[in-house]
Amino acid sequence: MENFQSHLAQNRYDRQLSPPIEMAMENDNHNLSADKHITDIDPLVSAIIKVANQRDKAAFGYLFSHFMPKIRAFGLQRLNQQGLAMDLVQETMTTVWTKSHLYNADKGSVATWVFTIMRNQCFDMLRRVQHNREDAFGDDIWPLYDVAVSQDNNQDHKLTAKLLVHLDALPLAQRQVVQGIYMQELTQQELADALKVPIGTIKSRLRLGLEKLKSFLETQHD
């Protein structure tokens, strides 16, 4: 069990450190130091790794139990309403569940990561309550992950980065499909199954999304 866990943690480590393109080269280079690192791992970190890699429900239950009362207390204090505090718990823990793969142990503790998610969410909820605005600025103000600066001059890389900037501008439905196909390398059928839509819908979203991205790039190069 111990070994199994270390192995998973090691994979996860690679995933965080290197962009997908370079991953193959990075393998097996730092097994020793990583194993050493894993032996005194904090239970919150190992729980989040299990959630990220295996969608482990028991591990998530542990995280939920750990953070829920504190998020609720924070929500009550800031938002001043039971229902909104519940919403804050729900929104924060949903992000922990769906984006656990974005947690990077090198960047800080699990508590700091969850705090960041919670504070950002609370910021947007407060604007919703006070200004009746459905905007989402929290994650732009305090990014949940590193804002990477391109380190090499690889043209592909740059183009990818440029495209990714524009991905945000695509409607959610198109964005999911473009990301699924080009970044996660899923097949159209796998995406259709995951999103529970017919494959024809995937095809048309992909076409629309790519056309839109193309037009963004063209206007930028003018």
Partner: peptide
Amino acid sequence: APWQQMLSNIMALPESTMSEPYIESSV
């Protein structure tokens, strides 16, 4: 019960399709 319900609702959601984000630091 309400917390249990919330917990299972959350865990019914799929992992975000967002992969390792690569964000430019400026606009």
